[in-house]
């Protein structure tokens, strides 16, 4: 499927989705509330069948968090990026995608660990890389560590 075809197909299902085509991949901008329905459609609808999530990460834009999901379809060989903007900086939350892609489990734990985003209904949401008692979320832009030596 070409980007245009994906756009029309997604728009038919979810009219509220907006698009961004400046980057390498077609980008879908969605709200955290509709993430599960959009992602389920992208994964299970045979026209999309994005069965392989090759990257899941988060960007701290200071005013908001942006969840970024990179998807690839092994059957149709098309890529897509889904972005969900989490506006609440103090209590960032989003639904988990563990049951749709199993790889999301570890990636979400990593994001929770480094950005402090809570994934609702995640089966095992613990810190992955840092100690349980670690203070703060280091990849946030406002993270302060007194021991950190800056160049």
């Amino acid at each position: 499927m070409t980007n245009e075809e994906i756009k029309t197909a997604v728009s038919a299902l979810f009219p509220s989705v907006t698009y961004d085509e400046t980057g390498e991949f077609l980008t879908l901008l969605i709200t955290p509330a509709e993430i599960r329905s959009v992602m389920k459609a992208l994964r299970y609808n045979t026209e999309f069948s994005f069965d392989y999530m090759f990257c899941l990460t988060c960007i701290d834009w200071k005013t908001h968090f942006m969840m970024v999901y990179h998807l690839l379809s092994k059957t149709h060989r098309h890529n897509i990026v889904v972005k969900a903007k989490i506006a609440d900086v103090n209590k960032p939350e989003i639904e988990t995608l563990c049951d749709i892609w199993q790889t999301a489990n570890f990636h979400e734990r990593e994001v929770y660990d480094l950005f402090g985003i809570r994934f609702l209904n995640h089966p095992d949401l613990r810190r992955l890389l840092l100690d349980e008692g670690w203070d703060g979320y280091p990849l946030r832009k406002n993270y302060v560590d007194e021991n950190m030596i800056s160049l």
């Binding site: 840092l130 280091p138 993270y143 560590d145 021991n147 950190m148 030596i149 800056s150 160049l151």
Partner: peptide, 10 residues
């Protein structure tokens, strides 16, 4: 990993 790292023992 001396500069700008939060987790490395120096």
């Amino acid at each position: 990993f001396f500069y700008n790292t939060y987790s490395v023992v120096k």
